[in-house]
């Protein structure tokens, strides 16, 4: 464990907590993409299957349980409890266009052709594009509530911090996982324009408005 990975995990934890709290306290999931949340649930389930086969640490296991729990709680809130506030019209990204290519890519490019490894690889590829429906929705609505932008900033930062963790592990432990690194770069790059808007607008107290 290193400071980059720990702060990345905490940023990720903060993001999922912000999201659940935002929906629970405002009793509304306006502006949130349910499709991205479904993709995240698939990411966590396919990546954390080793919960039942490998015990790494209490920290590792508890974080995995929290991420899976929070993502299903969010989906429950969005598609059941507060489904009246779910914005179907603006959440129109076709997630099949993300699922099919990532499944195919995981079957073609992976470390080992075993069930766990291919599912883990699929999860890594899917996570790198899972935020697209959410970013697409923000671009369609043209704006985002500030709490939603804090959620996106924390979520986007987590994988950016993981990039620093991988650089550290490469030099300190001579260990690297190329599939995770390339996907992590793609994932973080997708947030770049959002990061720019967040830093230049939201941090100055303005609302996140996309140029029309």
């Amino acid at each position: 464990m290193n400071i980059f990975r720990l702060s990345g995990d905490l940023s990720h934890l903060l993001a999922v907590i912000i999201l659940v709290l935002k929906i629970w306290t405002t009793r509304s999931c306006a502006g949130i993409s349910g499709k991205s949340q479904i993709l995240f649930a698939i990411v966590y389930v396919t990546r954390y299957l080793d919960l039942v086969t490998t015990f790494v640490s209490v920290y590792n296991t508890s974080m995995k349980v929290i991420f899976i729990g929070a993502s299903f709680a969010t989906i429950y809130l969005m598609y059941s409890k507060f489904k009246a506030t779910y914005d179907h019209n603006h959440d129109s990204f076709r997630i099949e266009f993300l699922l099919a290519p990532t499944v195919i890519l995981a079957l073609l490019i992976n470390q080992k052709f075993t069930v766990l490894e291919v599912l883990w690889t699929f999860s890594i590829y899917l996570e790198s594009v899972a935020i697209l429906p959410q970013l697409f929705m923000v671009s369609k609505t043209g704006e985002a509530e500030s709490i939603t932008s804090h959620y996106l900033f924390a979520l986007g930062s987590y994988r950016g911090l993981y990039l620093l963790n991988w650089i550290y592990r490469y030099y300190a432990e001579d260990h690297y996982e190329l599939i995770a690194i390339v996907s992590g770069i793609v994932q973080t790059v997708l947030y770049c324009d959002f990061f720019y808007l967040y830093i230049t607008k939201v941090l100055k107290g303005k609302k996140l408005q996309l140029p029309a």
């Binding site: 990975r5 995990d9 990720h12 080793d50 086969t53 490998t54 790494v56 640490s57 590792n60 974080m63 995995k64 991420f67 470390q111 080992k112 766990l116 883990w120 993981y162 963790n165 260990h175 996982e177 995770a180």
Partner: peptide, 10 residues
């Protein structure tokens, strides 16, 4: 099983 151990990241 060592390889699986390497997957110690979330």
């Amino acid at each position: 099983n060592f390889h699986r151990k390497e997957k110690d990241e979330l």
